[in-house]
Structure formats: structure tokens, C-alpha cells
Design a protein around this nucleic acid. Structure first.
Lengths: 337, 337
DNA sequence: AACAGGGGTGTGAGCGCTAACATTCGGGCA
DNA sequence: TGCCCGAATGTTAGCGCTCACACCCCTGTT
């Protein structure tokens, strides 16, 4: 198996020599530049294949000052929503021939995330993507004015050029409206973390829908997205039969259903429950969960589109309209008039 | 904000000049080499801080031929187990000051994964980590003999130097034993995908425990890890009261519980159910799920340890003993004598 | 017939770092 | 006093690319 010279991997000069051209011509072929005769191009491509040559990203990055790598900061959890977004973003990035440098960071405070971002910057990523971070952390990062584009997946009351989101607000309103229209007297809200942007938007949607329906308002109860927190809150809270509960995600809903069961409150007869996300298990819990479905695949694509735009023509970047959601009605809050 | 010269980012020479030393001395400081006078080191460090200098990974990679980046191939799903492993590996990699180049790949066939791996190789990653891939795909990759270390998280009957795993086999045996000891006449198995290594080991554990207890054997039923598949299988299968069901993961268990409920089979009175993974929702489904807990955090660490070993001293790499699991008993299969 | 122009290709420099080697300097010892 | 040695530092040569520019040759125009 001994190649020419200690069988080190081929470089652009090896290819050039084999194809009988200069290294610059090889470079032109590699970068799809015009002004290369088809016959020459073919010879070069043949040489590339024969030597199993692939250009060194390091050498390229050194001179172009672009790494074709995007830094992705994911929350240090395995929650369905964030994980789905991350995964779909990964697909989209690959389709655009970008690499993803991923880093999981518990997003407890700005310092934590700052460290993660600094790590990515040291890698000279071309852009940074943040997934549903704490609202204050998000603000802190936005204020940083890094010299690399930063795009975040997070909901806000008004569209922002550097944010991409699913329409949590309208999704929440639809969920609450459904409960009210199904005859529940009012709707309580078991919310996500108080500073999570998506949680805030769901809460806002709930609050405004309650207000516009002139239903009785109650204070929101904040969980931490986990089933355990949903269970705890639903166990401790004073719930009247006839009320609906809008839970900010499906995992917490599972905890809520468990608590209601223990307390002898029947769902949907005594209490209606609507979740958010439509996790794959939502149809199979008992009772099956009415919930708000989000199109994470589309979000991943849009995230990447925005990244490309910010990297390539930062000036043209404008607000992105949040993606719509869809209410999926199941047994925990069936349609009744 | 105009710096000296068009405010391009500082390089090693800028630091050297500011500190009044040669660039090589700066390099020595950067790489923690000995033979630098403490006073000199301090001056250099001061200059680094003042210029906010950070060394270019591209330039480094170009000369050292190491990128300090590990390629991570994750399945293109958001399943709890693989996601947890990926996340914990990410933490461990960061702790070891390595970057993670992540790539999600639907692991349907070897070609698919091959493309993902080739992409990582083109990035010149120092090592590749594969997460619970199809067994045949795994074999195909192992056979490839890439010139980069490849470590996989996947269970096998016998330990392998390039694999790291949690002891699925013994976990499965414990689960099945628990059901038998609790009085169920025999235990059926709703397995994972037929070619998934972890699924295969869980199946093997089930089969051998059944055999050694001389309980009646039944054919395994293969799902695809989703609640929907668990539901479908449990709906279609002929189940006798008094039997236990060992389900290869918790999501499928949720589907199974749903199907049993519809069929009027009570859990645990008529049928006992044990899952695998101990997802955070396991305590909150109805009835709460007896399951096998895996220590994904530890697995992530061990994965990284193995990677480091393979990168730094490939010859000393030996088999790793699979990590133990823990049976968590809840209502779907309580302890009874 | 001379020349402008452009497609096709080659040459040289330099991106920012590390590795290898060269040099300096200050003792300790004969 | 001179020499040697090792610690501390400097110098030079690439790593493998792209960019800017130089060059060639053929065609079409005046």
C-alpha cells in the first residue's frame, strides 16, 4: 500500500501534476470558476478522483477567512422542541454545504452562554445559531454586537430581523379559544419558565385570549417544561371542575394528567387539558392529548435561510413572519359546543 | 473604533510585537511549553488579553494536522436515548477542549452514513463518534479501516475495543426476571428495530432469561422505537392475562399501555409492563412505568475517554466493560412475590 | 498588418501558525 | 580564566490553499 512519498494525503499540487496543469487551475475547478476548458476540467476531476483528493478546509479557511461552519448553541436538555429544531437545522445546514459545530450549554445565565459563544468564535464560525434561550440571555447576546451574524430561534411579540420563530402567540390563543368554546368556564395556564421567550409568548396568547373572551383570569403557574413540574403544579393548585388548563408543553401536560388522575378529576369531563408541541407520544397518553403542533422542520429550514442571508448579504435581512401552528384535537379536550 | 490597521484581528506577530518577544515565544506560551521565563510569560499573556487575541484554529490545523474536532454522527431522530448520549458526549468533549462537528443522519443504510462520515473526514476531524447505528451499518463502517479513530456507542454480545455501551443484556435480563418473579407466567418482548445493536442485546437478554427460567417462549415483535409502533403491536397481538411484556423502550411502552387500556386489559393486574430508558415522563404515565434506567451521562464521558485514548495512544486501547443499568420499579410492574 | 480584447492558464505572495534548528546568555567547573 | 552546557529566546521554512496579477494565444476589428 506504499504510495509515492510516505503516502501522505494528496494536496492540490499532486493533483495539478497528475492532471498536467497548474495548482491554480485545480483551484478553479474546485471552486467552480468559469474559464476552464471542459477538457481541462475533466482531466482535473479525473486526477482528483484518482488521488481521492479533498481540499484542506484549514488551508482554505486560512486564506478565505471563512470556515463554512456554523456554531449551534443548544440548550443542555433533551426536550422535544429544541432537539427537533436543532436536528432540522442540522439537516438544512448540511443541504447548504455548511458544517455545524454544536455545543450544548445549560442556559442558566448569560455568562454560561457567553462561554459557549466565545468557544465558537475561537473556532471562527461564520455564524452562530441560538436555540430558545432565556429572554434576558438573548437580550444580552444581542447587545454584544459580535462581528459574526447571530440568529436565534425564539418567539417575541414583534418580528425581529435576527429572530425566527413559530407563532407561539397565536397557537396559544387557538388552544385557549378551543377550551373556552368547548364549554370550560375559564382556562388556567401552566406556563414554561418565566424567562423563556416561547413560554412568554404562549403566556401572552393565553392572557389575551382570556381577556378578549372576558373569562375569569387567574395567575399563571410556572413550571420548567418537565412532567415532574407539571405534576407538582397540578397537585398543588386549587382546581375547580369545569375549568380548562392550557399547559405550555406536552411533557408538563403528562405530569398534569397524572396529578388530575390522582386527585380524581376526570379529563375531559371535569377538566380539559391542552398541551403544546404535539410530541409523538401525545396520542398515546391517557387521555390522548389535545395539543398545538409546530412545524419544526420548516423552522430549521428558515433558520438556515436566514443564516445564509446574514452571511452573504447582511443588509437585506428583514423580519421573518412566524410560522403558523395547528391545533390537534384529541380526547383531553375534545370539540364540544 | 478604528484600530491600527483596518482593525483586522490580531495575529501572533501583533502579540509578539506588543510583548517585545518573538512570535515563537508567544507560540510557546499559547501551547504551555516549558522554558519560558515567568516574567516573559506574563508579558505575553498581558499582550494576548489586551489584543483579545485568540490563535487561528485554521493555521494551527494546517501545520499540526490536528483539528481538535470530533465528528459526531447522530441518528436523525429525537429519541431520548441517542439524544442523551449525544448531549452528554458534547459536554465531555467540551471539557476535554475538543469541538464537536455534529451531523444528523438517517441511518437507514450504510451509504447514508457513509456520506455523513465522508463529510466529516473532509473536515479533517480527529476522530468520529457514531451513536447507536444499525448493526450492519456499524459492521460496514468498522470494515472501512479509515485512518481516523472511530468509536461507536452500541451494545454487542462481547466487548469490543472500539465500542462503548451500557449493559443492555443484563438490563434486559433484570427486567424480564422482575416480571417473572412478580408472578407473570411468561414475558413477551416488544423489541426495537431488528438490526439495532441495543435492540438486539435487549432481545438476547430477554430470550436467555426466559430460557433459563424455563418460561414459555414467544416470538419477539419488532417495533421502531415509537409509541405508535408499540400501540400497533400491542393492539394486534394476541395477549393472555397473566403475561408480562418487556418493551424495548419507554416510548413504545407508552403506546403499549394505550393499546392495553383500549383492549380492557388492566396493568399491572392483567398484564405487567416493563420499559427501558427511564425517560423523565415514565413516572407520570398511567400506570407509572417500571423501567430500566441507563446512565447516559457516564456513557458520554466514557465515549470521550475512549476517543482521547484512541487519538493519543491508539495501541493501548482495550475493551470497555459495559455500564450497569438499574431497574426502577413502578406501578406497571410492581414487586410481588 | 497591426492591435485590442478576452478566454484560458500559470506564477508568486501570503494567510497565521508550529517544528526544527540557530543563537544568546549566564553560570558551574576544571 | 576559559570552556561547556543548558535554559531562554530568535530565525527560517513550510503546512495547503486562494487572490492578484502576468502571460499566452487566438479571434475580430480597423
Amino acid at each position: 500500500m506504499a504510495d509515492d512519498k510516505a503516502s501522505r494525503t494528496a494536496n492540490i499540487f499532486d493533483v495539478a501534476r497528475l492532471a498536467g496543469v497548474s495548482h491554480q487551475t485545480v483551484s478553479r475547478v474546485l471552486n467552480d470558476m468559469p474559464n476552464v476548458r471542459p477538457a481541462t476540467r475533466a482531466r482535473v476531476e479525473q486526477a482528483i478522483a484518482q488521488l481521492r483528493y479533498s481540499p484542506s478546509p484549514a488551508a482554505r479557511a486560512l486564506v478565505t477567512r471563512r470556515t463554512r461552519t456554523i456554531g449551534l448553541v443548544t440548550p443542555g436538555t433533551v426536550d422535544y422542541g429544541p432537539s427537533s429544531i436543532a436536528m432540522n437545522f442540522n439537516f438544512a445546514a448540511r443541504a447548504a454545504r455548511y458544517n455545524v459545530d454544536a455545543i450544548s450549554s445549560a442556559q442558566t445565565d448569560a455568562a454560561e452562554v457567553r462561554v459557549a459563544i466565545d468557544g465558537l468564535l475561537k473556532q471562527r464560525v461564520d455564524a452562530i445559531v441560538l436555540i430558545v434561550i432565556d429572554a434576558e440571555v438573548l437580550a444580552a447576546i444581542q447587545a454584544l454586537e459580535l462581528d459574526v451574524p447571530v440568529v436565534a430561534a425564539a418567539a417575541t411579540p414583534r418580528p425581529h430581523p435576527r429572530l425566527v420563530a413559530i407563532d407561539q402567540y397565536r397557537g396559544a390563543r387557538a388552544a385557549v379559544r378551543h377550551l373556552l368554546e368547548s364549554g370550560y368556564t375559564t382556562v388556567r395556564h401552566i406556563a414554561g419558565p418565566a424567562r423563556n421567550p416561547d413560554a412568554i409568548e404562549r403566556l401572552r396568547g393565553w392572557r389575551e385570549e382570556i381577556a378578549s373572551a372576558r373569562a375569569q383570569s387567574t395567575p399563571p403557574l410556572h413550571g420548567d417544561w418537565t412532567a415532574a413540574s407539571g405534576y407538582r403544579i397540578a397537585s398543588e393548585t386549587d382546581l375547580a371542575p369545569g375549568e380548562g388548563i392550557f399547559v405550555a408543553n406536552d411533557q408538563m401536560s403528562i405530569g398534569v394528567l397524572s396529578a388530575l388522575r390522582e386527585r380524581g378529576l376526570r379529563v375531559p369531563d371535569d377538566v380539559g387539558v391542552v398541551g403544546f408541541d404535539d410530541i409523538p407520544e401525545a396520542s398515546f397518553v391517557y387521555p390522548s392529548l389535545t395539543t398545538v403542533r409546530q412545524d419544526f422542520a420548516a423552522l430549521g429550514e428558515i433558520l438556515m435561510q436566514k443564516v445564509l442571508l446574514m452571511v452573504e448579504e447582511p443588509d437585506t435581512v428583514s423580519e421573518t413572519t412566524p410560522l403558523p401552528t395547528r391545533l390537534v384535537v384529541r380526547d383531553s379536550a375534545p370539540t364540544r359546543s
